[in-house]
Amino acid sequence: MESWKWRGRFYLQRWPSARAMRVLRDKVRAATARSKTERPVSAVVADLNPVLRGWAAYFRNVNSGRKFNAVDGYVVHRATAHASR
């Protein structure tokens, strides 16, 4: 965490920790594992939606735009790999 000054006031900069990112990636990896390729993509998406929505709701009040973009890219990568199998 760091702080920055804007118009004479200090604001705290916070974002999801590396551990929070790792736990979310682990959950996405588990849902899109190679052992689950027989499941339709719609079922995988239905499993991932509550996880991603909960994570986003928890971290929406912090400066996490870059982290959200990283998660989005990772989920798209894993979902497309799962769909292509």
Rank of each mutant, 00 (worst) to 15 (best):
M1I: 11
M1S: 13
E2S: 14
S3Q: 13
W4F: 15
W4Y: 13
W4Q: 08
W6H: 10
R7S: 06
G8T: 02
G8A: 07
R9C: 10
R9Y: 03
F10V: 09
F10C: 08
F10S: 12
L12P: 06
L12S: 08
L12E: 11
W15C: 11
W15H: 12
P16C: 01
P16Y: 00
P16V: 03
A18P: 01
R19M: 09
R19T: 05
A20D: 13
A20W: 01
A20M: 03
M21F: 03
M21A: 07
M21R: 10
M21P: 00
M21Y: 02
R22V: 01
V23E: 11
V23C: 08
L24V: 02
L24P: 04
R25P: 00
R25Q: 13
D26T: 02
K27C: 10
V28Q: 04
V28N: 04
R29A: 14
R29I: 04
A30W: 08
T32P: 04
T32I: 00
A33F: 00
R34I: 07
R34D: 11
S35M: 10
S35L: 14
K36F: 08
K36W: 07
T37G: 06
P40V: 02
V41N: 04
V41P: 02
S42L: 12
S42Q: 13
A43L: 15
V44K: 04
A46G: 05
D47H: 06
L48Q: 04
L48H: 03
L48S: 03
L48P: 04
N49V: 15
N49C: 12
P50A: 06
P50L: 10
L52V: 02
L52I: 05
L52T: 01
R53M: 14
R53N: 15
R53V: 10
R53D: 13
R53G: 14
W55R: 02
W55C: 02
A56Q: 08
A56C: 08
A56D: 07
A57M: 14
A57G: 11
A57K: 14
Y58L: 13
Y58K: 12
F59P: 00
R60W: 06
N61R: 15
N61P: 03
N61D: 09
V62W: 10
V62Q: 10
V62Y: 06
N63I: 05
S64V: 01
S64L: 00
R66L: 15
K67N: 10
K67S: 12
K67C: 10
K67W: 05
F68P: 00
F68Y: 08
F68S: 06
N69I: 06
N69D: 09
A70K: 05
A70Q: 10
V71K: 00
V71I: 15
D72P: 00
G73P: 01
G73L: 03
Y74A: 00
Y74H: 05
V75W: 01
V75M: 03
V76P: 00
V76I: 12
V76G: 00
A79M: 15
A79T: 10
A79S: 12
T80E: 09
A81R: 13
H82V: 01
A83K: 13
S84D: 06
R85M: 11
